[in-house]
């Protein structure tokens, strides 16, 4: 059986994997929406994520950054339950407590290409669906690359 990306989204909905307590107990991780951070002229980035009511998912769950650096993140809890956000940054995790119907901010500084975890660490929010990813694209600086011709990638 083969599946295309578009078909996968439909299949997740049909199977009840993209909602709470239908097929599985929670929502399958990695099934949330994808959003792109906005970049200011000085290179700083901004994004907003929201927790919709009774969905236990970040929206968007995957935040794409064009490069490493500073991200000003706005977090909104539209759920009727309390959650939190633990977020990556250079130096320490950051934490913000998000009571019902609340809004806050976090300033993250992230180093470079790759995928960084964030989530709500209360109860089992992480397992139910409130696990997200910040994905940084781009390349490492030229001076950090190996001295060799360009190589094939997958």
């Amino acid at each position: 059986m083969t599946t295309t990306s578009n078909e996968r989204s439909e299949q997740l909905d049909e199977a009840g994997l993209a909602v709470q307590n239908r097929l599985a107990l929670g929502r399958q991780l990695g099934t949330g929406n994808i959003g792109h951070a906005e970049e200011d002229s000085d290179g700083r980035m901004r994004a907003t994520i929201r927790i919709p009511e009774d969905e236990l998912v970040w929206d968007p769950a995957i935040i794409i950054l064009p490069h490493g650096g500073e991200l000003e993140l706005t977090l909104i809890n539209d759920d009727k339950n309390t959650h939190c956000a633990v977020l990556p940054t250079i130096g320490d995790h950051l934490i913000i407590w998000l009571v019902n119907h609340s809004k806050g901010t976090a300033t993250l500084n992230l180093p470079g290409p790759g995928t960084y975890w964030y989530g709500s660490t209360t109860g089992n929010d992480e397992g139910r669906g409130l696990t997200g990813a910040i994905v940084i694209g781009g390349e490492v600086p030229a001076e950090a690359k190996l001295d060799r011709p360009a190589q094939p990638r997958p």
Partner: peptide
């Protein structure tokens, strides 16, 4: 709907230790 409760700014996790 009322205004959002101000959750403030995220703090270092280590500050809660």
């Amino acid at each position: 709907m009322t205004d959002y409760v101000d959750a403030g700014q995220a703090v270092r996790l280590t500050s809660l230790s």
